[in-house]
Design a binder for these strands. Structure first.
Lengths: 324, 324
DNA sequence: CGGGGTGATAAGCGATCGCTTATGAGCTGT
DNA sequence: ACAGCTCATAAGCGATCGCTTATCACCCCG
């Protein structure tokens, strides 16, 4: 399986014709046909067959197109990426759990970028369990989220980033709020309610997931939303209760109408950590961020309520998966 | 640039040692060293150099690691993907603009999946301008969002999916609401206010972006949030005004405290479309979704208020970019 | 039935790949 | 300074790649 072969295949799929693909590539028709034959033999699938009105992809070929065109594109990307690395600003690749990426990370990185220096920061989302691998594989410079430790975290160094208190909130109209103005609730008693959570709660290592397990909430009473904001919005609409870092729902300019429930054992005192390779193996940019994190500017930025960013600075989130 | 060479490079970066990489691959050390040399020569960058305590990546090498490990992983992915294509459920790859992906698309696809059949649907996010290319390159089966037409949409067919009315909302406490209980506002008069928008507003072809341009809102008064829910949450907190499809903010179970502004020229009557390859080139799964879209079940699902999904069905969003 | 298009196959050829063993070159540390 | 580790380089060899031209097999359409 060669990049040349994949490129030929992608072009045939795109154009629906071997001859046309050969013309586009500037080679003879058998060259393309041969590349196709080699792929077919190695993968054990026809991939693409003659059909009325052009070549048509088999189910296997259909899956391959996407994969193959990504590979081809990454190949040309590689060359230009390296050319552009000369004299380009240093790059800081930060990964965070979805909750951190939606709450404190943008403000932290915005403040870090605004502090001068010539570092271009990017923020991606990954699950807690993937972070150690991403750092060790040099696919990320800093990971923000749970503390990474144990077997898989060899060579990594975690430092505390942000202290927060995890509470459970609900709309003022929620029965639990009206019944219990001041009385204490037990965690167990919350097992029967609907919990509104964000994507991070699907990560078995996340504090929210562990809280759900501890309470014993059945799957049927867990409702996963694509973002923290969406989960809280549903909570305001009275659809259920939601775990949340306290400062995010209370300092929020007064617009939020969510109130913390007085639950025994809550709030949980928790920490987010920043992790990177230890010692000299740490990227210079990662070191700069680590030093910045200790400054009052950083702490102040992370405690500020959530704000949007100007269009020129907005980058869509990138979700990173580990490829093995 | 060969996959073998890239794999060797990735392993060296991961392990920080040529010898260790060679041991892992089960080949001699010069084999790895040679692969590295070939890459270095072709790309014109040292990529990775000796440093105290292991090999350390150059800036260029740092960029390559991510790209290369993706390519390698996609290579092994390719083989297994094709093996699994035998007898596996048919695949339906849907791309949508971020707004659609956050609002009607999840409900539509959930209803489509629940309708029986043996189709596995996935939902990704792309900008409106990329959709035509994604469809033509067979990287997606159906695109949900603006109507695709013109030069770049050759061979594509758009059908109306969902009619909605775009309004501008604000918190009840917002000055515009208190001053204008019933009086009409002009669009121009909104240019000086802060607009809270989601990611799609950065796409020049999106209706929201065109509305902003038409009103003449300066960049400094646009605040981009990572999700619709986050933008609306900020609007509730009184941070500004937000464009929104009417049914999403009004039917929302009463929890939302956002009210539409009585603006001259609003609401805008708009449509989201579903686009796919035309005629026989359309995937069977895409055809099934097209037929389903016309059923009352589909319409009903899309009009329902936003809800979360059970953890077992939650899939993190994937953001797709076009590689050329 | 016989063009004119399609894609698949065969034979051949130079360049490169991927690997080996042997050796050089550079740094570290007791 | 020397051994001991590291990575880089050289020479060589078989397999494969990537391409060519020539030819065959198929199918639609007059």
């Amino acid at each position: 399986m060669t990049l040349t072969q994949l490129e030929a295949f992608v072009l045939v799929a795109r154009l629906g014709s071997v001859t046309a693909a050969a013309r586009t590539l500037g080679v003879s028709e058998p060259a393309v046909s041969g590349a196709l034959a080699a792929l077919r033999q190695q993968l054990g699938d026809a991939l693409i067959e003659r059909g009325s009105g052009g070549m048509v992809l088999t189910p296997g070929g259909q899956r391959l197109v996407g994969i193959a065109s990504q590979m081809v594109a990454l190949g040309v990307e590689a060359e230009s990426a390296i050319r552009q690395a000369q004299g380009a600003p240093e790059r800081l690749r930060v990964v965070a759990t979805s909750t951190v990426a939606e709450s404190v990370a943008p403000a932290l990185l915005a403040a870090f970028a605004g502090r001068g220096g010539n570092i271009e920061a990017s923020l991606s989302v990954a699950s807690g369990v993937e972070m150690a691998a991403l750092l060790q594989d040099r696919l990320a410079d800093v990971a923000l989220g749970p503390r990474l430790s144990g077997e898989t975290a060899a060579g990594l160094e975690s430092v505390p980033l942000f202290r927060y208190r995890l509470v459970v909130v609900a709309a003022p109209s929620h029965p639990l709020v009206r019944l219990n103005g001041s009385a204490g609730l037990t965690l167990r008693s919350l097992a029967g309610h609907t919990w509104l959570v964000d994507a991070e709660a699907t990560d078995p290592a996340s504090p929210v997931r562990r809280l759900l397990d501890h309470v014993g909430v059945p799957e049927s009473h867990i409702s996963v939303f694509p973002s923290l904001a969406a989960a809280w919005s549903a909570a305001e609409a009275g659809q259920g209760i939601a775990p949340a870092p306290a400062h995010l729902v209370t300092l929020d300019g007064g617009g939020h109408s969510l109130v913390p429930l007085p639950v025994e054992g809550l709030p949980l005192e928790l920490l987010w950590y920043a992790t990177s390779l230890s010692g000299e193996r740490r990227t210079p940019a990662a070191g700069a961020l680590h030093r910045f994190m200790a400054t009052p500017d950083a702490t102040h930025a992370m405690h500020a309520p959530l704000r949007g960013v100007p269009p020129s600075r907005f980058r869509p989130p990138v979700y990173v998966t580990i490829w093995r």
